[in-house]
């Protein structure tokens, strides 16, 4: 393992008024690692993820990305965010732009690239997710799986150090889940560092380097998928996984 983590959460707290959703999260994500976060609804998985690029502000602790504590007031969050991609449950594609326009917007607006240069990089990113033929299509004409792959292309085109996935397949029809998971596996093989909040237990078990089980705003248990799924140590983990196995 590399000596320094890409992402390090230190004693991360998040509260809405008196409601505490994150109660001291410590987590390190190493370069090239795919970490899957599982747990029941309301366990704080998404809040934790959204604190990692400050879409939500933490109320205590540190978020260190590539050596920089991004919770500090003097940090330029817009620069930091170029190094952290994010993929959303609802895709959040821009409906007024084509697939290529979605992918290249930040290249042109933030990095100031020319249209030709941005288009070239954008097409390369679309090729990575297998959607070159949909470059000129608007999001309304894409299937859910295609839309999410464009969402992934929009994240990888900025060549981030880390990509955050917020339940990337939860809004998809079952038959299109596979194509998105396939792209994520390819990204992992290419060495991308990924933090994935997911309900796809089979995917987490097969593809993750490490699985985190969260409940009640804390990390209850973590380890290689074979351990967490095969021999969970904690009662809450056992109960959660039992419910999942029963549902399958």
């Amino acid at each position: 393992m590399s000596p320094s983590p890409i992402l390090e959460l230190v004693g991360l707290h998040k509260a809405y008024g008196s409601l505490s959703v994150l109660r001291g999260i410590d987590l390190r994500v190493w370069p090239g690692e795919m970490v899957c976060v599982i747990g029941p609804s309301g366990s704080g998985k998404s809040s934790m993820l959204r604190c990692c690029n400050r879409l939500e502000e933490s109320t205590g602790g540190q978020v260190v990305v590539d050596g920089t504590d991004i919770t500090r007031a003097d940090v330029d969050i817009n620069t930091v965010r170029q190094r952290i991609g994010m993929v959303f449950q609802q895709f959040n594609l821009y409906p007024h732009l084509t697939a290529l326009g979605n992918v290249t917007l930040a290249l042109r607006k933030v990095l100031g690239k020319s249209k030709a240069e941005a288009d070239k990089l954008g097409m390369a990113a679309l090729e990575q997710v297998g959607l070159v033929d949909k470059a000129g299509v608007h999001p309304a004409q894409l299937s859910g799986g295609q839309a999410q792959r464009v969402g992934i292309a929009r994240a990888i085109v900025l060549q981030p150090k880390l990509i955050l996935f917020d339940e990337p397949t939860s809004a998809l029809d079952p038959e299109t889940v596979g194509e998105v998971l396939k792209v994520m596996r390819q990204l992992r093989e290419a060495g991308m560092t990924m933090l994935v909040v997911t309900h796809e237990m089979a995917f987490a078990r097969a593809a993750a380097d490490r699985v985190i089980f969260m409940d009640g705003g804390v990390i209850v248990e973590q380890g290689p998928p074979a351990e967490v799924f095969g021999a969970p140590q904690h009662e809450r983990t056992k109960a959660f996984l039992a419910r999942y196995h029963a549902a399958e």
């Binding site: 690029n53 879409l55 817009n78 620069t79 965010r81 170029q82 952290i84 991609g85 994010m86 959303f88 609802q90 959040n92 594609l93 821009y94 917007l105 930040a106 607006k109 933030v110 969402g151 929009r154 994240a155 900025l158």
Partner: peptide, 17 residues
């Protein structure tokens, strides 16, 4: 939807952009 501005901000666009 709120996700529109969140997606844009997550790629580094500032408020005005």
């Amino acid at each position: 939807p709120r996700g529109q501005s969140e997606a844009a901000r997550s790629t580094g666009l500032n408020w005005w952009q």
